[in-house]
Structure formats: structure tokens, C-alpha cells
Amino acid sequence: MGKPLSGKVSVVTGGSRGLGREMVLALAEAGSEVVIASRKLAACEELAADVRAETGQRALPVACNVGDWAQCEVLVDAAYGEFGTVDVLINNAGMSLLYPSLDQVSEAMFDKVIATNLKGPFRLSALVGARMAAAGSGSIVNISSIEAAHPEPLAVPYAAAKAGLEALTVGLAHTYGPAVRVNTIRCGAFDTDIAKAWPEGLRAELARHTALGRIGVPADIAGAALFLASDASAYVTGATLALDGGFR
């Protein structure tokens, strides 16, 4: 099959663990050089070493809290400073906060969830999308959640942010098209670090609601990410790809 992303440069936020880590490794295996961004630099550095050893691709670790616009600018400057271009941006960083009831969600909690899941992807996409458009090509992939369409009582701010992210996808596709394609992967329940905090029985309950009878594993995201990052999806933009095992 070859390496569909040979010579390309990909930036992945929230890239040091979970779904982000899986996408970083898949992109590198497909021939892309990678920029690995997350809040913890040591974790990014560790994965960057693995990428170099396992794939031979260049990997740049960058500490970045995407909820901070200034840090978004530092990340973009670092990527272009090191590689001279960005061909793929995957806005994967996300977070939700637990709360006992909606009336006890503080302004700081709400702002933090919106900043990480929506404000950061907006700023990064604006900075990188404009440069992609000027260069004549690029792909932006936003990682959303089934919460955007099926909000749970204990994740309402997160669901609202992810719904906004999906709206952002469509707006960006029209803003930066035809040169830049912008798409969403709407993820279902995945067995990542977050799943360790699930209450007993939730894993089985979620699995029962899927046509495939199981929750996702990190490797399940690789094919979808490569499809949207590469020319295999040349006529796909402004779209939302459900990666949820047939959840209902």
C-alpha cells in the first residue's frame, strides 16, 4: 500500500496518550513527520523517542495547553519553525469535569471545558488553516464525541463544547475550502485512561448499546484518522464520521 502520508507533517494535540498516541503512531507509520503536543512535555518526549525508534520519522514534542491562545501560537510557531509546513492538524485534546449537579458547575470549570474542547481547536485551526490555504492544501480533523448528539446529564458542558466543535468543522470547511478539508470524527466509548474511572457496570452497559457489542479500543481510530488525513478522502469535507460501533 505504500506510505500515503510520505513527506507530510502532522500535528496532533492531546497526542501523548490514548487516542492521540494511537493516531501519532499511525500517522508516522504512514510516512508523516509528527508534532506531538500535550500539557506534559515528558510524555510527549517519551512518545517522540518511540516514534523515531519504531518508524524512523522525525518527531517534535511540544508542551501545550490548547485552552491558552498564547500557547497555541507557540505550538504553531514551533511546528513551522521545525518543519516549515503543516499538512495535517488533528484537534484531539479534550477533557470533561465531574460535577454533582449543574448548578454546582463553577464558571472556572465551565470555562476550562469550553477552552480545551472548543476554544483551542478554533484558534489552532484558524492559525494553521490560513497557512494551509495559502500553501494550497491541508487536512484538519476534529475529534468529537457521541456526547455532541447524545448529551448525558453528567457531561452537559462537554457535550455543548463538542457540539460546537462539530459546527466549527462545517464553518472551517467553507472558510478554508477548496484547498483545505475539515472533518470530524465523532467517537463513541473507548477503552482509554478515562475508562478506568467509569463506575462498575458502565462498560458492559455501553457495549450493549452498540451494534458491534463492544466499546472501542485505541487502535480502532487509526484507520479513520488516516482516511481523513490522506488523499483517500479527497472529496470529503465538512463531514462527521461516526466511530462508535453503531451506538444508539
Score class of each variant (00 low, 15 high):
residue 48 A to L: 01
residue 48 A to C: 02
residue 48 A to R: 01
residue 49 A to G: 06
residue 49 A to Y: 05
residue 49 A to K: 14
residue 49 A to F: 02
residue 50 D to V: 11
residue 50 D to S: 07
residue 50 D to G: 00
residue 50 D to W: 00
residue 51 V to K: 05
residue 51 V to G: 06
residue 51 V to T: 02
residue 52 R to W: 01
residue 54 E to Q: 14
residue 54 E to I: 03
residue 54 E to A: 13
residue 55 T to S: 04
residue 55 T to Y: 04
residue 55 T to V: 06
residue 55 T to R: 02
residue 56 G to C: 06
residue 56 G to P: 07
residue 56 G to H: 10
residue 57 Q to A: 04
residue 58 R to A: 15
residue 59 A to V: 02
residue 59 A to F: 01
residue 59 A to L: 00
residue 59 A to W: 00
residue 59 A to N: 07
residue 59 A to R: 06
residue 60 L to H: 01
residue 61 P to F: 03
residue 61 P to H: 07
residue 62 V to D: 01
residue 62 V to W: 00
residue 62 V to N: 01
residue 62 V to K: 03
residue 63 A to I: 09
residue 64 C to L: 02
residue 64 C to G: 06
residue 64 C to K: 01
residue 64 C to F: 03
residue 65 N to Y: 14
residue 65 N to W: 12
residue 65 N to Q: 14
residue 66 V to L: 05
residue 66 V to Y: 12
residue 67 G to E: 10
residue 68 D to R: 13
residue 68 D to Y: 05
residue 68 D to W: 07
residue 68 D to F: 08
residue 69 W to N: 14
residue 70 A to S: 12
residue 70 A to K: 12
residue 71 Q to W: 08
residue 71 Q to D: 03
residue 71 Q to P: 02
residue 71 Q to R: 11
residue 72 C to D: 10
residue 73 E to P: 02
residue 73 E to W: 04
residue 73 E to F: 05
residue 73 E to I: 03
residue 74 V to K: 13
residue 74 V to A: 13
residue 74 V to G: 03
residue 74 V to D: 12
residue 74 V to C: 01
residue 74 V to Y: 01
residue 75 L to I: 09
residue 75 L to Q: 07
residue 75 L to E: 07
residue 76 V to D: 11
residue 77 D to S: 15
residue 77 D to N: 15
residue 77 D to Q: 15
residue 78 A to Y: 04
residue 79 A to V: 05
residue 79 A to W: 08
residue 79 A to E: 10
residue 80 Y to W: 15
residue 80 Y to V: 11
residue 80 Y to E: 14
residue 81 G to M: 11
residue 81 G to R: 12
residue 81 G to C: 13
residue 83 F to P: 07
residue 83 F to N: 11
residue 83 F to V: 12
residue 84 G to E: 09
residue 85 T to E: 14
residue 85 T to S: 14
residue 85 T to V: 14
residue 85 T to W: 11
residue 85 T to Q: 15
residue 85 T to D: 11
residue 86 V to M: 07
residue 86 V to T: 13
residue 87 D to F: 11
residue 87 D to W: 13
residue 87 D to K: 12
residue 87 D to N: 15
